[in-house]
Each structure stands twice: as structure tokens, then as C-alpha cells.
Amino acid sequence: MRANKAIVGVFSYIDDLLTAVHSVKQDNYSYRVYSPTLSHEIEDATSSEKSLARRFTLIGGILGCAAGWTLAIWMSLDWPMRVSAKDIVSLPGFFVVGYEWTILWGALATLLSILFLCRLPRFFSKPLGYDPRFSDDKFGLVIDCDQHSKINSLKELLSEAGAEEVIVVEH
């Protein structure tokens, strides 16, 4: 269950943002960082695990490879028709089908990984604390916090780190 209240720090500079992220992490708050682009510095600061996307691709690729070969072999055996004196199961020719479906299924599984791991699509509601400026040129640090006593100290933490604006938002 997400918190009902969040504190949003709007940053112009990435080094200020990273300072804030490091101190928030030490205190074990649940937080989200928004940035206009992919940044490896933010990635390094926020998590150490690798993305699970590659598992999706691997499984999709293996399934696709199996499916492609199966399709070609099964359909050929189902109605054995000799063409130009070739084997009924002509593996070199069927390779193309297996190869293309490996890529096709792998790519579709990768698409699924994005939808699943990034929690998309999300048409109707924005996550708490999101600001349109975060897609343009500002960085955002959103900290979930329901405890009144801590709000002020968190606000102070964000502005000390260099946030140019600190807002408290509620559901």
C-alpha cells in the first residue's frame, strides 16, 4: 500500500539530486526518482540489481525457436508431400523459420518485459508526486511519508541538498 502523502523535491542539477538520493537511501524511505532521460548515475545510485528484462527475452527466444521448428516439422509430417526429392523434414530449410521466430518471440517477450517491469500502461492516474517538468528538464525526488513528524525534516533535507522547490502532495 502506497503512502497517502509524499514530499517532492524539484532539482535542476543532477549532482544535487544524487546527494539527496544518498541521504534518503540511508534512512530507508520509499522513494522514486524522476528524470527526463536515462542516466547511469541515477541508476547506480538507486539500485544495484540488474534488470529482469533479459530473462524475458531469453525465455521468449527459446520458446520462439522451439515453436518455429515445431511448426515447420509438424506441418510437414502432418501432410508428407515430397518436393524436389528433398527430405520431408528438411532441416536446413526449416532453420529460417526457427531463426525468425526466435527473434520474433524474443522481441515480443522483451515488449512484455517493459510493460510488466515498468508497470505500463497506466492511462488514468499519474503516480503520486509526478510533475510534468520531470519529462522536460528537471529531476524529481519523491519520498513517500505519512508521518507528520518527519515531513519537516525531509523538506529540510531536500532543500539543503539543493532542491529549488519542495512540495508536499496528497492523494
Binding site: 532521460t37 534488470s51 505500463l120 503516480p127 509526478y130
Partner: peptide
């Protein structure tokens, strides 16, 4: 845009994918 917001876990998975 599927409701993309550019949170840090989203970017991480997006980059990998």
C-alpha cells in the same frame, strides 16, 4: 505514451530492454 513517467525503476528496465 502508455502513461510513461520516467521513474528510476522504469528507466532501468527500459534501458535494459
Amino acid at each position: 505514451s502508455l502513461g510513461w513517467t520516467g521513474g528510476h525503476t522504469a528507466w532501468k528496465n527500459y534501458g535494459a530492454a
